[in-house]
Each structure stands twice: as C-alpha cells, then as structure tokens.
Design a protein around this nucleic acid. Structure first.
Lengths: 351, 351
DNA sequence: TTGAAAGCGCTAACAG
DNA sequence: CTGTTAGCGCTTTCAA
C-alpha cells in the first residue's frame, strides 16, 4: 500500500501540484482554478484514495490540528473520562485530535509530558486538575497557548475553566429550603479541612460558603458541619456517630456522592427512611448518585462541559485571561421530602 | 521565543548539521564523531534549550512515536480510564504518546477518527472495546499495525488482548468452594442473555462457563441463575424476589460489582448479614466493590494491564496474530464466610 | 572524521 | 488561470 501523495493526484489529473493543493484545501475558487481542473483533481483524489499527509502539511504550516490534554489523574476518577469526552467532541467538531497524558501529580513527569507534546508541535495545551485546587501552570507552558481546567492560578496568563461551586452550594441548600427545611440541617464533609489539606479544598470551601449564604438569607443555619474525608467510609462514620449521640438530623448535605453513599449505609442500619425521616442532597452528580436507593439529588460537576468549553476557549480566544465559570446543574433524585414538622403542619391544616 | 533548530545548534557548536544530528540522536560513537565535537554540540544544545522538532523528524523517518487509541466508550465507565492509564504508562516508558479518541460505538465516526489518526501518521492503532464483544476491526485498519482490546474477532489479522474471563469465573466459584459452600449458590446477572444482547455477552457467557465447570468438578451446581441487566437496580430486584419467594441463598455470585451493590441493598432491607447469612462474590474489581460494607470480594478486570500489554504488543511484535489472555486477580473483601451449615458442623465438632 | 546535498510531502510566493 | 521554485527542520547517503 504505497502511500498516495499530492504529486500522484496532480499527475493523474494532469495539473500542477500547486493547483491540486489549492483544490484539496478548498481554495480553488479563491485561486481561480478552472472548474474542469477542479473536477479532475477531485476525481483523481477520490480514485486514488488520496489523504493528505498531515505531518508534512504541519511542517509547512506549523499547525498540527492537535491539542495536548494533560491532567493530573485520569484513571482514579470517572470524572476525568467526562472531561476527555467533552474535549474530544469539541476538538473533533473542529477537525482537531487530542494527545492525552496523565502526570499522576508528579511535576517532573508533567514537565516531561508537556515537552513531548510541544516537540510534536501541538497547537495548544489544556492543563486539567481533576479537583479544583490552587495550582500554577507549569513553567513549560509559558508562551504556549493554554487553558487551565479546575485550577485556581492567581496571576496566571491563561484562561481557566472552573465549575461554579458557589452557585452549586447555593443550589443544594435551596433545594432543601424549597421543600420546607429550616432546622436540623447538617453538612457532611465540610471544607475538607484536614491534616493533608489544611485550609480545606477549594470546592469544599466554596460550596460551604454558598450553602451558608443561602441558609443565612433564609434566616436558617447549619445545625452541624462535620469535617471529614470525602469517601464513603467517612460519611458512614460521621452519620453513625451523629445518630448514636441521638442527634438525628432532618436533612443531610453531603459534599460528595461518595459521602452520601456512606450516609445511606448508616441511615439504613438505623432503619431510617430516606427521604421521609431524613432528606439527603449531595454533590458531584456521578453515576453513584443514581445507583443509590432512592436516587440522591445531586448537584453535578459539569465535567463534560469543562472539556468542551476549554477546547473552544483554546481555539477561539487563545489570548483570553481569566476565569470561565461553568454552572452546576441539579440532578434530581428522590431523596428530598418535606421535614416531618412541615408534614405534620400540612396534615393538620388539611383536616 | 523563536524556535531553536538543529542548524542553530550546529552553528553555535561550529560543526555541520550532519554532525549535530548524529550527536543528538546518540549515534556520535557509531559515526565516529570526535569527542570534542560531541561535547561542543551537547553544550550548545543545552545552552540554547534545543528540542528537536518531531514533526520534521517524522516527515523524514516516517515514525511519529505516537500511537492512536480508539475506544468505543471512555466516559461512561471508569474502566476506560484504567485502560488509557495503562496504555499511557507503557507508551511513555518507550517514548511514545497517545492520540486518544472515542467513537460512541458509531462506525462512521470510527472510520473518521481512524483516518484522522492515520493522516497524522500514527505508528499504530489500538482499538479497544470496553466490554468484551464480537467485533471485527474496522476496514480502515487494514494494513495498519494494530492491536485489539476486548474484541473477539475470528480471522482477524491482528493481536487481541482480552481478560481471561473463563479463569475469572473459575476463581470466583473457587473462592466460595474454598470456604465450604456447596449448596444454595445463586448467580445474579447470568449470561446477560436479554432482548438487546441475544445470546448473552461474551464476558457473561465465559464467566458462567468457568463458574459451572468449577462447581461441577466439585460435585456441586448452581441452585439458581438469574438473567438480568448488569446494573444495581436489577440486582436489587432479583435478590428481593428471591427472598420474597422464601428462597434465601447461601451465596451469591454477582456478575458485576454493580449487581452486588443492588444485592447488598436487598439483603440489607431484609436484615440479612453479609457474609454470615449470605456470602457474596462479584466481578470487576471496581472502586464500588471497596465502597460497599463489607467490601465485596471481586474478581477484577485487569484494565490497566490490558492497556500496557496492548501497547507493548503493538511495539514489540506488530506481526503477532491471535489472542493474548490477561488473568483476572481476585480482590479480597470481607464478603465471604463459611455457610451456616458448615459453621454448625464446625461448632459441633468443637464441643 | 566531517560536510554538501538531496529529499520526506506539502504550501505559498511569484512569475508566466 | 497554471507552473516553477523555494523552503519547513530533519536525516542520511555519498564524497571529500
């Protein structure tokens, strides 16, 4: 299968390589190539099954139509898949392909990977963290068209795409307020202010701020806020302890779906019904949220959109500097009901 | 930041481009370049921060050190992340990068994507399905170095990397036999022989065969085998119905971790304890398995290895034709115990 | 040992 | 309207 080149096409069509080139890049009109010649080239190309060698073209045009996507973690979390998926779709829609790599959070690997991509002349790089965090883009990216995902990088000369965690927090609390909750609302997970994440996680801090603001505006407040890791086990323990101390909450705001899973386990053990005894709302909008029984209402991380928006930003406005906030949609489950008190009142008023 | 070229390096070092090229590609010894010249080139390159333009090199050598990875689905399943992760690590270890794309199962998109990759002169393509299935590699791959993942493609002229589902099935059943189970063993999920997957799924069929063979060899057999979709909800329903018909199993073999999650929900509702009332073993080895309480013992899909092995096969033996089976390790949880009968017997013999 | 020169496949001035 | 020509940055043959 000897590769067909543009020269072959031109020869077969009986025109110059230049003419063939113009036809193939769709500029035969601009360049006033005769209709007949254009047709002959097109036919020859089709018959020969001509496909331009993009490597050669790139060498000439210094555009590879390839974008590098480097992220800290892709395997550990299903979220990453969605980001890649979104980026892929957006890239493909515009004739680009994605060079994907993962650093494991190691900055030496990171620098290495970015160099490898740059050596292959990528048109730009998307640098993604899977969880929003303060992080400066690596040096190697200086002077390269780049867009950050999930990075808080004050003073960085790039665009940064982020979920709107604050509004997400507000949405979660609003969902509870809307069904009548005012008291006994408890947050599980908190700021994630732990030994290994002193000061908390950006997502945690910002969500909590949104939650507290909304509750405050409604004249309510959190009854408890428990700081713990964002994994199921810790949700289980937190809720279990709460119940064993006799502090049954009316509603739980779990900072991740995984925490909600743990909370469900603890509530289930004590025979408490969701949503009638306890309402639950969580964050992430992962598959897990829909696997729980009843499905938990979850404020979703817009991973797919993070990917598409980053690619489009990179391609459309490579010079943009600043944050691009992406809203977090509420994925409704069946885990929220009116609090017992309200139900009582309603029942009474019906009589 | 004007890009530094090899010519710049050569000029600065005071040698010819040829000499510089030999030094940079590590063949100064072969080519008997003087030690002094070699040093000068190296220094110049370092000072200038020279990085070879791989696009240009590729045009000359027709090797891009880039591999295409096209898979049907990457977002929907965390598994895909692991495959990519494995492929990435293996590729990087050998100086290659990955062009990643997803087809969504659409064969037109597939052909398109593969063409795009081929146009970029990838050195080879890895074609991955996320779940083992009968599937011929697309036409576009003919004559291209390729390795399949999770595809059953009889007569295909490529290598195909697959999990050893049969041995996986045997391992699951063996885990139960080893702790004394003989009776009341029930399989949930089955062959996945459903309207939209007539004849079942390869993984399901093969796992079931392994399970049945092992049980048969031990003079045992499945008490029930329930055919259903591999999602939590169906596991929940299946087990719930079983229990409501008064057919409490001694042990459950769930064909996926998601089914195990559903089974846990149903068992929990009826107040049955895992593993003392019912033992559970499942397949996939996903995070979910470790999130359940108690963690379920799960026969893991070796996704990471599927990725690394595919890349290495592609690079090392591009002409290999046939299947490469990868074993499925058992990830032990705490979901298996001796059956009540056996425990009784043991207790009696202790007295 | 080193350097000159050709060429990978393509694009784009520029002249016909 | 079409063809000639000159590279893009790199490797590699061949002659010096």
């Amino acid at each position: 299968m000897p590769r067909v080149t543009l020269a072959d096409v031109a020869r077969k069509a009986g025109v110059s390589r230049t003419a063939a080139s113009f036809v193939m890049t769709g500029r035969s009109a601009d360049m006033r190539i005769s209709e007949a010649a254009t047709q002959k080239v097109l036919e020859a190309a089709a018959e020969l099954g001509y496909r331009p060698n993009l490597t050669a073209r790139s060498l000439r045009t210094s555009k590879t139509h390839t974008i590098g996507l480097v992220s800290d973690v892709i395997a550990t979390t299903p979220f990453a898949g969605e980001v890649i998926h979104g980026a892929l779709d957006a890239a493909l829609a515009r004739g680009h392909l994605l060079l994907v790599a993962e650093t494991g959070g190691d900055s030496a690997v990171e620098a290495d990977l970015i160099s490898e991509m740059l050596d292959r002349q990528v048109d730009g790089v998307i640098y993604a963290a899977m969880h929003t965090q303060e992080r400066q883009p690596p040096e190697a990216l200086a002077g390269v068209p780049a867009v950050l995902i999930n990075c808080i990088a004050p003073g960085s000369q790039t665009a940064c795409v982020l979920p709107d965690e604050y509004e997400g927090g507000r949405a979660a609390a609003t969902a509870l307020l809307d069904s009548g909750h005012r008291d006994g609302i408890c947050a599980i997970g908190g700021h994630h202010d732990l030994p290994h994440t002193p000061g908390g996680l950006h997502a945690g801090n910002t969500r909590m701020r949104g939650i507290e603001d909304v509750l405050g505006e409604a004249g309510a407040a959190l009854s408890f806020s428990i700081e713990c890791q964002y994994e199921p086990e810790f949700g289980y323990r937190a809720v279990r302890e709460l119940l064993e101390r006799g502090q049954k909450p009316e509603a739980l705001i779990c900072l991740t779906d995984r925490l909600a899973m743990g909370a469900y386990q603890a509530l289930g053990e004590k025979g408490l019904d969701i949503p009638h005894d306890v309402s639950v709302v969580s964050f992430d909008g992962s598959d897990l949220a829909s696997w729980l029984r009843p499905r938990v209402t979850s404020v979703a991380l817009p991973h797919y959109e993070l990917g598409t928006i980053a690619v489009n930003a990179l391609l459309d406005k490579p010079d943009f500097i600043g944050d691009i906030l992406v809203s977090m949609p509420v994925r409704a489950g069946e885990s929220i009901a009116a609090p017992s008190e309200t139900r009582d009142r309603l029942r009474r008023s019906e009589q």
